[in-house]
Amino acid sequence: MTEYKLVVVGAGGVGKSALTIQLIQNHFVDEYDPTIEDSYRKQVVIDGETCLLDILDTAGQEEYSAMRDQYMRTGEGFLCVFAINNTKSFEDIHHYREQIKRVKDSEDVPMVLVGNKCDLPSRTVDTKQAQDLARSYGIPFIETSAKTRQGVDDAFYTLVREIRKHKEKMSKDGKKKKKKSKTKCVIM
């Protein structure tokens, strides 16, 4: 069974824990209790493949930012979460993405942009803004509501699919490099 290491990042209060708990335990946590770091595991079937999701729910508070490099190193894919009623959390996505790329030393890291709290009427981040940002990053965008469960499975499952595509691409690139290195030079 394939294991996928997913990391949920975003500013404090955007609903990272609520999304994760909704996926794992099928219930909505409405009281806000700032996370330092929590880890969850769940076995699911995605596109006919049974897999184990190892999900790291991270601290959004700035005082825990020193811990970010460590979990970013171990993560295979990242859910970059903002709240649709919090423009600052949307603007912060850029910083999370840049930090992930720096730590992973790669421009090509599996990510999904997630606009959470889409059940709320007080939207300050337009869907088109988020779609445009995701398009500019070359990553999928999904709106979710941890409260109603809308888009929750889709967000995590899409990230797994992005990781699969990335692994497939990397193995193809690896095979191309191996083929090239088999060419021999004969000096007579």
Score class of each variant (00 low, 15 high):
K177M: 11
D154P: 05
F82P: 00
D57G: 00
Y71M: 13
D173W: 14
V44Y: 14
C80F: 14
A11Q: 04
L113I: 15
I163H: 01
F156R: 01
V14G: 13
E63T: 05
M67H: 06
I187M: 13
T124A: 08
F82S: 11
Q131G: 11
T2M: 15
V14H: 15
S17N: 00
K16E: 01
V7C: 05
T74H: 12
T124W: 06
S122D: 12
T50R: 11
Q25Y: 11
K184F: 01
S39M: 02
G138M: 05
S181H: 14
K42M: 08
A130D: 11
T124P: 08
I21G: 03
K178F: 09
S181V: 11
L159V: 09
T2S: 10
G77C: 09
A134Y: 04
V9I: 11
R135F: 10
A18T: 04
P34E: 02
Y32I: 04
Y137E: 07
D57A: 00
A18P: 02
G115Y: 13
G138H: 02
E76W: 11
S122Q: 11
N86T: 15
D54L: 01
G15F: 01
R135H: 07
M188H: 15
A18G: 09
K117S: 14
Y32L: 07
Q131R: 08
G48V: 05
P34H: 02
D33A: 02
R68T: 15
V44H: 09
F156V: 06
R149L: 07
E162P: 01
G13L: 07
L159A: 05
D30T: 13
S122R: 05
D30F: 07
S65C: 05
E37F: 03
V8E: 06
Q25L: 07
D33G: 01
R161W: 10
E63P: 09
L79M: 08
E31A: 05
G115D: 03
T20A: 05
Q150E: 07
F141V: 10
D47H: 11
F28V: 01
E107S: 09
R73W: 07
V103N: 04
A59S: 08
K5M: 09
E31C: 05
L56A: 08
Q61A: 11
D153W: 04
R149G: 07
E98A: 03
T124H: 07
Q25K: 03
F141H: 05
T148R: 13
Q25T: 15
K117C: 13
D38N: 00
